[in-house]
């Protein structure tokens, strides 16, 4: 991957990659919010390749966010939610297996939310939070991790003089990048992003997008987005969902230029949704 770094910086547009290994493997997954009465996801199968950005698109209520939240088992927190069939494998491991700890899973599959949600603590404490809950106490380690993460999130220059200030004093875009920094501080394998730019203005959005392309080098990213333009700008692969089903999945260029299914074409060209 390292040989591609130069290319990436000069070429923000997604490019075809050499064969890369699969990180996430979704196999015929079915999901229900109400004890299995109605299925929100109806048998989704797809694979997410390593160190690429994979975008999930589709109209509201199509199940894309649900799938995303299945990937780090955030849906476990809903009492009535239930996986009805199939399996999800991350790094080859079935994440619903008995010996998988959801907490350990979430440490390695980070998540960035739609609405930026830094804790009401200082910037430093926010970024250090993940490490601290893992039991890291040494100040030098924390300092180093905070600096590295803030730099990776392109926030270091703006925040280095005010690390002890409350995170809630930052602007919206900065707060969202802080959330990203917080997520990458624990070096997860995968980062899930749930419409990370929907609450941001265009300038902040551009910065976050730029950041995602940067992060692709080190992380595998799955992003849910409402904006087709965003998907086409940043993602390597795109999956189109409709009513709980995966309609089409392929390289972004192909989905946007030459979709094989009519529904996809309609959606992308704005005829519905």
């Amino acid at each position: 991957m390292h040989d591609m770094s130069n290319e990436l910086t000069t070429l923000p547009k997604a490019t075809k990659k050499k064969k890369s290994s699969t990180v996430i493997e979704v196999d015929d997954i079915g999901f229900s919010y109400d004890h299995g009465k109605t299925e929100t996801l109806k048998g989704i199968s797809m694979t997410v390749p390593k160190n690429q950005v994979t975008a999930l698109i589709g109209p509201s209520g199509c199940g894309k966010s649900t799938l995303l939240r299945c990937l780090n088992r955030m849906n476990d927190l809903i009492d009535t939610a239930k996986i009805t069939r199939g399996a999800i494998r991350i790094l080859g491991q079935d994440i619903h297996a008995a010996d998988v700890d959801a907490i350990e899973l979430r440490k390695q599959v980070g998540m960035v939310f739609q609405k930026y949600n830094p804790f009401p603590k200082s910037i430093y404490d926010n970024v250090a939070y993940g490490l601290r809950i893992q039991g890291v106490k040494k100040k030098s380690v924390l300092d180093e991790a905070v600096e590295r993460s803030l730099k990776s999130a392109a926030l270091w220059d703006e925040a280095k003089d005010r690390l002890k200030d409350s995170a809630l004093g930052l602007s919206g875009g900065q707060q969202q990048r802080l959330c990203i920094a917080r997520t990458i501080a624990v070096r997860p394998k995968v980062i899930l992003m749930d419409e990370p730019c929907s609450a941001l203005d265009p300038i902040a959005t551009a910065k976050v997008e730029e950041l995602m392309l940067e992060l692709r080098r080190d992380f595998t990213i799955v992003i849910v987005t409402h904006s087709m333009q965003q998907a086409s700008r940043i993602s390597d692969n795109t999956a189109f969902f409709y009513l709980g089903e995966l309609i089409e999945y392929g390289p972004t260029t192909q989905i946007f230029t030459n979709p094989s299914v009519k529904q996809t074409e309609d959606y992308i060209s704005g005829r519905f949704g």
């Binding site: 991350i90 790094l91 080859g92 491991q93 010996d99 998988v100 700890d101 907490i103 350990e104 390695q108």
Partner: peptide, 10 residues
């Protein structure tokens, strides 16, 4: 990868 090296073990 095989299931025996479960990376998400508690």
């Amino acid at each position: 990868m095989t299931a025996s090296e479960n990376p998400f073990k508690a």
